[in-house]
Simulated assay, not measured.
Amino acid sequence: MKQKLISVIVPVYNAENYLERCLNSIVNQTYSNLEIILVDDGSRDGGPQICDSYAAGDKRIRVIHKQNGGLMSAWMAGVNVSAGDYLSFIDSDDWVETNMMEEMLKEAAGIPGEVICGNFVIEKDGHSTSHFHELSPGIYEGALLENSIKRNLLGNERRTISMSRCMKLFPRELIVDNMIYCNPGIKMGEDVNIVLPALLDSRRVVILKEALHYHYFYNDASMVHKYDAGMYDGICLLIDAIKEIFSSKSITDWQEQWEKESLFLLMLAVKNELRGGKKGFTDRTKKICKAEHVKTIADKYKIRPEDNVNKLLIWVMRRPSVFRCGAGKIIFELYDRING
């Protein structure tokens, strides 16, 4: 029986300090029938040279050099030239266990529309924390897939399945057929634009037990809490994209998922204002909450977060008065000061 070909797509942008660690974890996979596509998205460091060097020493590696267009445009370019039966996505500052491809492929039944979901480890400050999907490990098909996954993908405080395109194995056609929903202009939460439609079209989803194959590197240098003046507009683009995806698929009661997910995404916009916004942050917070009918949605679905940060945010958002916005800002400032 012919071995399945896995196309591993790695977007590369200014990651020279981590790239070799990432590539070594891929080229040394115990499953060797790989097509490794490195997409240099206009890197301005030594990353392109590292990519070319690895390609010279491994015939499975192909390098694409392109102008900078952002993460989504990079992995889409990789998909467009891929030839694999399955696709796997790995970001260039992350790395994977060397048995990841073999272990994930073992769980594939070879049918169209299946998605294999592994778990991941966050590597931060020299410490590792394991993270798992909220749904129980197992095989989801038929009514179980419809009710447990497709009708419950979004709108929860903790997503039932991670919306990251990484740590998963997709049949190539499931990604290609849904790239029509991808908008490279969306810079925040952009993986939702491909993972959501892929899962909605899936016929079989496998959530692996343990399977801590993927190591997500939390780069403190890129995670500084800075105010993003365009965050609200970016979130609105994402909310609109999610609505377009849901409305085009035959999913029962998608409206509830969309409205609740919108509220949780808007929490990020309000958090951005309270945490980093300067003059006018209260007015901007009020504008967000009024324009998006936050209180109406929160009351309609009786949104009561469990996370303390989200509890604070929903308290502010239900009635974004000067007092509540000011109190929220002080609490975030104290938290950031204590936690560095």
Results as ranks from 00 to 15, higher is better:
residue 177 D to T: 02
residue 134 E to W: 02
residue 197 P to K: 07
residue 312 L to Q: 07
residue 315 W to Q: 05
residue 17 N to W: 04
residue 123 E to T: 14
residue 7 S to H: 04
residue 215 H to P: 08
residue 334 L to R: 14
residue 86 Y to Q: 10
residue 136 S to N: 06
residue 61 I to F: 11
residue 279 K to G: 00
residue 223 M to G: 14
residue 232 Y to G: 01
residue 239 I to P: 07
residue 201 D to A: 06
residue 221 A to N: 10
residue 193 N to V: 10
residue 81 V to D: 13
residue 124 K to P: 02
residue 309 V to R: 05
residue 49 Q to E: 10
residue 25 S to F: 08
residue 257 Q to D: 01
residue 93 D to S: 04
residue 181 Y to P: 00
residue 337 R to E: 14
residue 102 E to M: 11
residue 206 V to M: 08
residue 170 F to A: 09
residue 196 L to C: 01
residue 252 T to R: 15
residue 157 E to A: 05
residue 56 A to K: 11
residue 42 G to C: 09
residue 71 L to P: 03
residue 170 F to K: 01
residue 304 R to V: 15
residue 50 I to W: 01
residue 55 A to G: 03
residue 97 E to P: 08
residue 185 G to R: 07
residue 222 S to C: 13
residue 32 S to L: 12
residue 156 N to I: 06
residue 87 L to K: 05
residue 337 R to I: 13
residue 326 G to W: 01
residue 259 E to K: 15
residue 172 R to Q: 10
residue 212 L to D: 08
residue 174 L to M: 07
residue 194 I to G: 01
residue 178 N to K: 00
residue 125 D to V: 05
residue 170 F to Q: 08
residue 111 I to K: 11
residue 195 V to F: 05
residue 311 K to P: 10
residue 119 N to W: 06
residue 179 M to N: 05
residue 327 A to W: 05
residue 214 Y to M: 14
residue 300 K to T: 14
residue 146 E to G: 01
residue 159 R to S: 11
residue 251 I to A: 03
residue 12 V to G: 02
residue 90 I to Q: 10
residue 37 I to G: 04
residue 269 A to C: 02
residue 234 G to M: 08
residue 285 T to P: 03
residue 229 A to R: 14
residue 36 I to R: 07
residue 183 N to L: 07
residue 275 R to D: 02
residue 251 I to K: 07
residue 187 K to Y: 09
residue 86 Y to R: 09
residue 119 N to R: 04
residue 66 K to Q: 15
residue 298 A to N: 11
residue 189 G to H: 02
residue 135 L to T: 10
residue 59 K to P: 00
residue 70 G to P: 13
residue 301 Y to R: 12
residue 243 K to V: 12
residue 311 K to W: 03
residue 56 A to R: 06
residue 150 K to M: 04
residue 77 A to H: 07
residue 308 N to V: 13
residue 253 D to T: 10
residue 226 K to M: 00
